[in-house]
Design a protein around this nucleic acid. Structure first.
Lengths: 248, 248
DNA sequence: AAATGCCATTCCATATTGTGGATCAAATCT
DNA sequence: AGATTTGATCCACAATATGGAATGGCATTT
């Protein structure tokens, strides 16, 4: 499967760099120009890439948006949770987000943005590390001791901000605290100036399937209001869980 | 590029059917099981597919959502237009949509939904025919006579609803009317019970780059209010155009 | 106006790579 | 417990991808 792997390399490279000519692309991925061109031509013929007539550069086509939203929709979780996200945003005035666990990342499946100027920049489908986010720590708090250990073994905890938890012991303490409170707080650990409050969503088998969160500027999500936001997120997370057939 | 084409067939098939086992998949795409499995295994290793541990079925991974939203964002049009979509929705109370032309379809790049119960179901990245939608007819109205002729030659105009325009002459008249008014109306031509009003967005080179539209139930977008919605959409389309450097 | 340079595209002989029927393993159904 | 279905693995063969070089087209320069 050498050629397929090359094609996937090319797709990833174009996704990363945006728009590239054959020459640039071939030097970035390290394949000869001829090979690169053949693969790109095939992907373009199949409409997975588009070529800008002016610059002759290739970029990913809107087909990826089409496929991506189909994937999003196949989680029927999304359609069930959507109205709750909207209500939660309206009631609290802060952006509501829904994330799922995918390997060692949390992935944002959906969000409803508040209309405040200052916003955490979460893009749909964006991947964020577990140890540095509210939704991520929520997932981590449900792991067994062994699973957590394995996760830590394969993860380098980089300091995104001065407040990021980069120490296994501190993380363990934090997770214990989260289990006690039933919600997780991201206190400017991912992005300076942004706090996040998250709670778990369960399915009918009582499995943790998603994390619900509120995110906003530190000026609005203040330490005094953390409890309030925590309760709100927990409450809505339960409601979504119940819509999924969860019975406490 | 036989194997790459097969891989793309497989991706498309899974996108279409949702979640498939190797056997089903191989019969749908018509490749032997061994071949199918090898391609699927490679795609899974590269995280473009995920295998459900329980059913052992394969489905598209969230990577497509990630790539898709990246594509969406590379149109910086999206980020520029977003605040206007929101304002337009608030001011009119109806869902605002932004579509671009991609080959012979209009593709929804972004939308802000109203909170009315009855909604036109537009999914991000969804493709809709040009002849049966407001945004589509807006694009058609900018085509030269020859371009329109070519478009008609390769398009079968199927009647989505009793009101869909299926006749070239009627379409030509409609397009003339649109050019005069500066906005296009979709009068239940795509979906019964839904009307749409669209206007053109231009870039700094005065090229038509996108269409802005309002969509809503016939009970709210009534014939008497069409003029009002038309003016609103035109006004906001101009504002977005100006943000793109357009000078009238 | 001609030349230069840059880049995308096309070409083709070679051997590397994918092929797919058969087999094995495991899970699910009867 | 046996039967059946399905996913995973294997391997000899030949079809297919490879990639360096030549071609062609478009701009910018001299």
């Amino acid at each position: 499967m050498k050629s397929l792997n090359k094609a996937l390399d090319i797709i990833e490279m174009i996704a990363q760099r945006g728009s590239l000519g054959i020459r640039e692309l071939s030097s970035f991925v390290g394949f000869p120009v001829g090979t690169t061109h053949r693969i790109v031509a095939t992907l373009a013929k199949r409409r997975f890439l588009v070529q800008d007539p002016a610059s002759r550069n290739y970029s990913l086509s809107l087909r990826f948006l089409e496929l991506g939203t189909r994937v999003q929709q196949q989680f029927n979780l999304t359609s069930i949770a959507r109205p709750y996200l909207e209500k939660l945003m309206q009631e609290t005035g802060e952006s509501a987000n829904l994330a799922v666990l995918d390997r060692d990342d949390a992935v944002y499946l959906d969000h409803v943005r508040s209309n405040h100027m200052l916003q955490l920049f979460t893009r749909l489908g964006a991947r964020v590390p577990l140890y540095a986010t509210g939704v991520g720590k929520m997932f981590l708090s449900r792991l067994s001791e062994q699973e957590l250990k394995d996760y830590l073994a394969r993860t380098a905890m980089a300091a995104r901000t001065p407040r990021t938890i980069v120490n296994a012991d501190n993380l363990a303490k934090e997770l214990a605290q989260i289990r006690k409170a039933g919600f997780a707080v991201d206190n400017e650990e991912m992005e300076e100036g942004v706090r996040c409050v998250a709670a778990m969503v369960f399915d009918h088998m009582k499995r943790p399937v998603a994390a619900l969160s509120l995110s906003g500027a530190v000026t609005r999500i203040t330490p005094e209001r953390i409890e309030y936001f925590g309760e709100m997120v927990k409450q809505y997370a339960i409601r979504i869980s119940e819509s999924l057939g969860f019975n406490s």
